[in-house]
Amino acid sequence: MSRLAAKFEALAKTGSKALIPFITAGDPRPDFTVPLMHAMVKAGVDIIELGVPFSDPMADGPVIQRASERALTHKMSLKRTLEIAAEFRKTDQETPLVVMGYLNPIEAMGYEDFANAAQRADIDGVLTVDLPPEEGIECSTLLKARGIDPIFLLAPNSSEERVKKMDAAGSGYIYYVSLKGVTGAGHLNAVDVENKLQQIRANTKLPIAIGFGVKDAASAKTIANIGDGVVIGSALISKIEDNIDNLDQASNEIIELLISIRQAMDN
């Protein structure tokens, strides 16, 4: 069983939900990321999504766009993101790691080389925003053969047919994009999410993590009641941006926010 599947199974047994932070690898500096990942694990997160910086993050709002830009000024790349993951793994063999990004860096590396590199870095899942299952068979086959879960997105306007498609193509979990919009948008509607989740659950047994629009303990708690996991990204990255001259402070504020979310989710 993959680390992701095992994690969700263990959480389900205790009736608990997965807290999944998203950070951009190398933001604002390459040496900031690994210590932050370990600190987040101590704060009680279950899975980490590590964003691969890309020059043209079409599905991301301004906060994550700027995170990519900061990381790219330090020549961060897919290769170096995997190095960061491998570095983290040296002292943490438990926490599932998902690499999330856009397709072109993977195209440039080559699908097979990427799958091999991801396996060497002991990555658990890969989520490629602009690679729907129709175009992604070659890549996901290579990943699955190496025990890595290909993770796909569903959106508020996804049809039942697409839910079935993601169920067949994906593993690990499904990432439900809770609103029509880019990351960091603010118009989350819990009733809509709840209704949609019913339709999704009727067509897949995969755990469902919900992201986009979660920004504090209250919204995380609402979402945790509906899904199997809560993804939080822009709100964490904002702390880096707000404290760009004092990264210890940035790190502290991220951890504080995650602890408050963890508590709200568990109560």
Binding site: D56, L78, I106, E107, D130
Partner: peptide, 21 residues
């Protein structure tokens, strides 16, 4: 350039070895 994926399709692109445009 070289083949890659940007803006919804695969085509020739100007990108570096890391796939950044």
């Amino acid at each position: 350039g070289r083949p890659g994926v940007l803006h919804g399709n695969r085509t020739y692109l100007m990108c570096d070895d890391d796939g950044e445009i």
